[in-house]
Design a protein around this nucleic acid. Structure first.
Lengths: 138, 138
DNA sequence: CTGTATCCCGTCCGATACTG
DNA sequence: CAGTATCGGACGGGATACAG
C-alpha cells in the first residue's frame, strides 16, 4: 500500500493503490514479457531518477505485482518480472489505452524522449484483437 | 486535465489523469445509471466535504466524463450524468473490481460508514456475467 | 550494477466558515 | 440547494549526492 488513505473504500481503491503513480504502469509495461534488469528499466524510462525507480519497484513488489530476483554475482544482477496478478493487469491497461484512443486521442502524447521502445511484445495484440487502437503499445 | 504532470507519456496516463483521485471512481459509480443531484451525491458519499465534491465534479466535467445540467428553478436544481466516455469506463472499473476480488480480496474494505448504498443498478451484472465477484458493487 | 540518504516542492485532500 | 473562500497538512515526485 502506497496510498495516501489507509482505508480504501471499495475494490477500485485497492486496485488504484497498486497501479497509480506516475511511473508504475510504464514499469509494468517494461517488464511485461521478460525478466528485466534494474538498469534496463532505468535505461528504458530515460528521465526517471534511481531514487524514484527504486521506490516504485519496492512498492510494486510489496503490493504483489512484481517479483525481484537477486543473483549473487559480481557485478550484482537483479531481475524483475510480473506476478500472475501483475500479468492480469495487462489486459486492463490495454483496455484503458483503447478507451483513451477512442474518446480522447488528442490527449495522447508520444513517449519519445522520455521512454525508449524496448521490451514490447508485438504478439500481445492477438489477445486483444478487438482493441486495435493500442495494439502497437504493448 | 487535473494532473500533476502536464505531459502524459502514453494513453494510460491520460486515462489515469481522468479517473485517479480519492473520490472520482465513487462519484462515477454514484451517477452511473441516473441523473443525480449534487446533494444526492453528497449524501451518498457521507464523509466528503462540499469543497472536495465540487472540485472533483468540475474536474470530471472538464475531462469530459460527466455533464452538468442546471435548471433555473427555486430552489436551484443541478443534475449530473455520465457522458458516453464516462459510461464506457464502467466495464473497466468493473474489471478492476474483479481483479482485486480475485487476487487481493483481503484488501477490500467495506464502504459502510463512508458511503451509502444508493443509485446502484442491480441489472448491470448482466453485462458482466463473467465477472461474478464484484457483481453486487455496480 | 543496484541502489540509498537528504532535502525541496507542488499537488491533493480536508476542515471550517461563508454565499447566491 | 449548490456550491465558494481560505488555510493547513500529508504525500508523491524529483534533484543531487553518496554507498554496498
Amino acid at each position: 500500500m502506497t496510498v495516501r488513505d489507509k482505508s480504501p473504500e471499495w475494490p477500485i481503491e485497492a486496485a488504484f493503490d497498486c497501479i497509480s503513480g506516475k511511473w508504475k504502469s510504464l514499469i509494468i509495461r517494461c517488464i511485461a514479457y521478460d525478466r528485466v534488469r534494474y538498469s534496463d528499466i532505468k535505461a528504458s524510462l530515460v528521465t526517471i531518477s534511481p531514487h524514484i525507480l527504486s521506490r516504485q519497484l519496492k512498492s510494486l513488489e510489496s503490493d504483489g505485482l512484481i517479483i525481484r530476483t537477486q543473483y549473487e554475482e559480481m557485478p550484482l544482477r537483479v531481475e524483475y518480472h510480473l506476478t500472475p496478478a501483475g500479468l492480469e493487469l495487462l489486459p486492463i491497461l490495454e483496455y484503458l489505452c483503447c478507451w483513451t484512443s477512442l474518446h480522447f486521442p488528442e490527449r495522447i502524447t508520444s513517449p519519445a524522449g522520455k521512454t525508449r521502445r524496448r521490451f514490447f511484445c508485438q504478439d500481445s495484440s492477438e489477445n486483444f484483437s478487438s482493441c486495435s487502437p493500442a495494439e502497437n503499445i504493448f
